[in-house]
Design a protein around this nucleic acid. Structure first.
Lengths: 223, 223
DNA sequence: GACAAAACAGGACAACCGGTCTGTTTATGA
DNA sequence: TCATAAACAGACCGGTTGTCCTGTTTTGTC
């Protein structure tokens, strides 16, 4: 109903053009949106077929089962979303702390702009599927792990530059991802993105020690 | 199969005893477990009826629709779970910070003991239902809000005692709940509770200012 | 152009789901 | 005791779901 992506025109009849990659992409487009907003179980293949303008035969040809479709969505789309909105921006930032801040800001701004919080794609599917099927769970866990490791690696890079001396990289990464995921959960439930900013401010005032106190006290930055 | 709670004995025939409260409780018991571990959509009323040893007539008498059952589970069971495992322990603790630490520890220990992470009941249902139905969403958001407010109130109480001078109560509460929820999400997905401890350690090294720098520097406590 | 494989169409189907319905048993209380 | 309502039993139904199956069309290859 709301999110029709690209149903082929009904006017052009009779002439069919085989476009396996395009058809596969259209199905994944629709499934990605529907799985995130309505969830896996609440998304019926009939709805997806109608929204994508795809017949049952074509769908079954590319994705034999619903589970296969969901696995493709997770591995190709969800993983890419995490990479594009989190991993790459953080790695490209001047520091881990600044990267995390920028992503929080960007996501909060985007949510406030569109006035609707769909939640984190990874988190949404992880909650629904990780207990239901162990194959799902393993793939989702791998994405979470990669996300955390990217942030931790960035902190280690900062440390090689002399900064973030007193920060435990893995601890910082875990807390960042957890705070973001949890904040998104609340934002989705309350349909209000302001909690993201609240948590970001909390993280900014963070002095993450790895055990012994920080040597060089850094003044709080006032951005 | 696994979580049979209290199906009435099949041996005793013919004699029926009306026990509306008991029957209602048994249904809620089963539904609470199933909704949390399998999710709302994946839990069929047939399964619940079989697990609770309840006929369709009885179920429909107490809960006219599946949605009504879920609302009852949320309002009576999920809210109570948050109250018992979070709000009451934090309010009873010597300080907000200590209360939060104790709850994190207790939950992590319990999860490691039972070797299986089912996730946070509130978070699980919030993800699946808050976008599907606005009535669900409102109830779940209310529980989240109460949870946060309780922690913030405890911080304010600490401040009246002279402690936590530089901490913004709402910010601390939001970050705490977010970190816990997110950590539970990851723990559930990886089926490993250690990330909870990781996030707790991160929160413990936290210096949450409300804007201006803390007056009296407190030495890091080494618990 | 012949031929095999891939790509797609579209119907069929069995299982299941949630809700409804009618009827029977138990408690209540005047 | 007897009416009345609540509590419960159990069958039933329309609709939906995911999957499968049989054809037909297109594409690639020699």
């Amino acid at each position: 109903m709301s999110g029709e992506i690209a149903a082929p025109s009904r006017g052009a009849r009779k002439k069919r053009t085989n476009d396996p990659e395009g058809m596969r992409r259209r199905v994944l487009d629709v499934a990605e949106v529907s799985f995130q907003s309505r969830g896996y179980h609440a998304s019926s293949l009939g709805d997806l077929m109608a929204a994508a303008g795809v017949t049952g035969g074509a769908l079954h040809h590319h994705f034999p089962t619903k589970k296969a479709l969901a696995l493709a969505v997770i591995e190709e789309r969800v993983a890419a979303a995490v990479r594009e909105t989190w991993i790459e921006p953080v790695l490209a930032a001047s520091s881990a702390r600044e990267g995390v801040r920028a992503v929080f800001e960007a996501v909060a701004a985007e949510l406030e702009l569109q006035g609707y919080v769909r939640g984190c794609p990874l988190n949404n599917l992880a909650h629904e599927l990780s207990l239901a099927d162990d194959e799902f769970r393993a793939v989702l866990a791998k994405i979470f792990a990669g996300w955390r490791q990217a942030i931790a690696d960035k902190v280690r890079a900062d440390q090689r530059d002399g900064a973030e001396r007193g920060t435990d990289p893995d601890r910082f990464a875990a807390l960042t991802v957890a705070a973001y995921s949890g904040a998104m959960s609340m934002a989705k439930t309350s349909q209000d993105a302001s909690v993201l900013r609240e948590c970001l401010k909390g993280l900014e005032g963070l002095q993450l020690s790895s055990g012994r106190p920080t040597r060089k006290r850094r003044r709080r930055l006032l951005l």
